[in-house]
Every structure is written in C-alpha cells, then in structure tokens.
Design a protein around this nucleic acid. Sequence first.
DNA 1: GTCTATAAGGGGATAGAC
DNA 2: GTCTATCCCCTTATAGAC
Lengths: 216, 216
Amino acid sequence: MSEEKKKIVSSKPQTRIRAAHEKTILSEAEIIFAQYGYAGAKLSQIAKAVNISKTNLLYYFPTKESLYLNVLKNIIDIWLEKLTLFNQVGSDPATKIKNYIIDKLELSQKHPNASKVFANEIINGATNIGDYLQERFSTTLEEDVKLINTWINEGKMDAIDPYHLFFMIWASTQTYADFSVQIQLALKKDKLEQCDFDNAAEFISKVVIKGLGISQ
Amino acid sequence: MSEEKKKIVSSKPQTRIRAAHEKTILSEAEIIFAQYGYAGAKLSQIAKAVNISKTNLLYYFPTKESLYLNVLKNIIDIWLEKLTLFNQVGSDPATKIKNYIIDKLELSQKHPNASKVFANEIINGATNIGDYLQERFSTTLEEDVKLINTWINEGKMDAIDPYHLFFMIWASTQTYADFSVQIQLALKKDKLEQCDFDNAAEFISKVVIKGLGISQ
DNA sequence: GTCTATAAGGGGATAGAC
DNA sequence: GTCTATCCCCTTATAGAC
C-alpha cells in the first residue's frame, strides 16, 4: 500500500467529472475569497462563477469551510516551494538574496489572488491556519535565520536582526499583490505590467543588499 | 456662519447621548471591520460589543455602509496627518526618512485596527474609498516624490525610483500591524512589545538609508 | 455518482412605540 | 430624541430525486 500524501478532500473517490469540477471550483473560489475574505465570500457567487448550482457546489465541497481550507492549502503549498532562502540558487549572499526576492515577486505577479487570500487569513487572525502555518513555516524560517547569522559571523554582511529582514522582504514583495490597487493608483496605471515587477525587483534587491552592507 | 468641516454624519443634530454612542460605536466597529472586512462584519457583532440592540445601532448609523464609511474616514484622517515625508521634521534626507519610518511604525503600533481596516479595503479593491484616496493621497505622494528627486539631483542619494521606495516603506511598516499574527508566530511571542517596534524602526531605517546610498 | 427542492437560520433595514 | 417589534431576503446546509 503506497503512502500517499493526505489530501483534505481525500475521502471521496476521484472520477473524471469530480476532478474537473473540483479544479475549476478551487480556482474560482480563490478569486472570490481573495476579494471578500472568508466571511464575505458567498457560495452563490462562487457557484455562479463556475456555472453550477449553489447546492451542486456543496456536493463537491460539503461545507464552505472545507472549500476554504482546500483553497488555503493550495496556496501554502505554492508558497513553501519558493519561500526558502536556504535552497535558493547561488552561493554568495547577494545572489541568494536577489533570487529570493525575484522568486517572491514572481509569486505576487503570477498568483495575486493566492497572496490576497493568505493576507486576509493572516489579518483576521489566522484562525483557520495558525497551527499548520506554525508547523510548516517556522522550520524553514529558522533554517534561513541561521544562514543569515552564519553570513554575519563570517563578516559577509552587517550584524542585523535576521527576523526583521525577512519581515521586510515578505512585506515589500507581497505588497505588489495585496496592495496592487494602491500601487496602481500611485503609478496611475490600470494594471501592473512586467516592467513594474522588474523595477520592483531591481529596487528591492538593490536597497536590501546594499543596506545590509553586502559587497557584490 | 462658520465654515465647518463636512462630516458624513453631519445631518443629525448632536446631543450628548448621540455623541457618546457614536464614539463607542465607531470604536468597536473599527475592531470588527478590521477582523472581518466589510462584508464579513455583522452589525449584530458590533451592537453586542457596544451593548445596544442591533436596531438601535441602526438608529445612529442608518446603514451598514454609512457606519463603515465613517470608520474609514477616521482612519484616513489619522493617516494623512503623518503620511508625508515633506513635512517631516529634519532637513537632511537621513533624518527626514528615519522620522517618517518611525512615525509610520508608531501608527502601526497605536492604531493596528485602523491599519487592518485600511488593508482590507485596499485588498478588496478599494471600492468604497478609491476616489477619496486618489484625491487626498496622490497630492502628498507627488510632493514627496519630488522631494526625493531633488535629493537625487543634488547628489545626496542614489538614483532610484521614488515610487518603489515609498511602496517599500509603507509595506515594511504596515506589516507590523496587518501581519502582526505572522510576526508573532515567527518571533514566538503572544504580543508585540515596545522593543519589537524599536528594533523594527532601527532595522528598517538603517537598511533603507544605507541602501539608498545616503551618507549620515 | 450527480444534482436539486426545500428547510432552518441569520442578515440588514423599516415602521412605529415610547 | 431614543429605542424596539417585525419584516423580507439571502445565507448555508440537508434530505431526497434522478
């Protein structure tokens, strides 16, 4: 018997029609949850976006909460693949940090709704996800903090508090997804373009690397 | 006839009991809206927090939307008082930028719920506040951008894109309010303390100022 | 296995009592 | 001026039809 990854929806047998429906439902649900948060999102909205009846939606995901948790789980999995400095390509601090920033910004650009769902969840107190977050996030963060401290001890960068460094990088990159509306207002654009993300990557990595006293 | 500031609730005459109720209602509403966003917040929750009936609440604020707009207006007024680099004390770039960052962080510390309501509003598309924001925010931002460009032309700092600088500062400071739960998880604390905000101010201003090539 | 008619409850708002 | 009994709609969820 093969050890399969536990899925929250695992109990139901997977038919072709179920697999197809679940995929589109999760995709549309992410958009709605991103815009309205958990409480504000309505199953009727999601059902309408998928073009099925509200009650039919509840056949595939028996409760609103189960749907939400599955959306959230998808997001965290995408996140954790990239959210590590330690496994970033490169050997020197400058390269690793720059690639880390570029990867995080790419997530903001390609998965803005995922970022917004996550933001909503954290703002409202991470009630649904706290434990899962603690478990999976903390370990990779601690590893990355250690790496920064190694670099500090080796004299490769200034002695700063690694935690606040990560808070700054997370915030500065996620803002291009979560607060895109404000950024669009400021830049007087209807939509953020590739060049905006390129400029952001350039700016953030320059300021962070130089600000940390890392020689390139 | 004196020119009074237009208030959204202006139409009703102010009695003592109304003034007192409105104050506590706005205060509690801010907390609830911060946690659940507009759609997610329930008038019944807010009424319960104020210890009045839901219908009585609707006497003081005739609609949910009117209540929300008043909460939001309070917040923006607090914001705009401080959110200007131009009017910051100090004459040299380093001092002005450092004080700007300290002030923004102080807002995150003292008005975390205001910050969260604002964050929710922006994430869900700024549908209620877009015009007001454009009007009041844009002017001060443009002024601040000009100031940065002056400093660049005077050779006081590296030639960077001023807009992305402000996005970074806003994000890095607001994250201590909006994402406080995530930060608490990372720091393994139940509550952020004064020293955490001091460390944040120290870190952010150091990295930004040094990263911009500003000599101190 | 897939989908829908119907239920049960809570949402914001109003008309009218004090 | 202040407060409440009542309304109507829309929410999630279930029991049962195909």
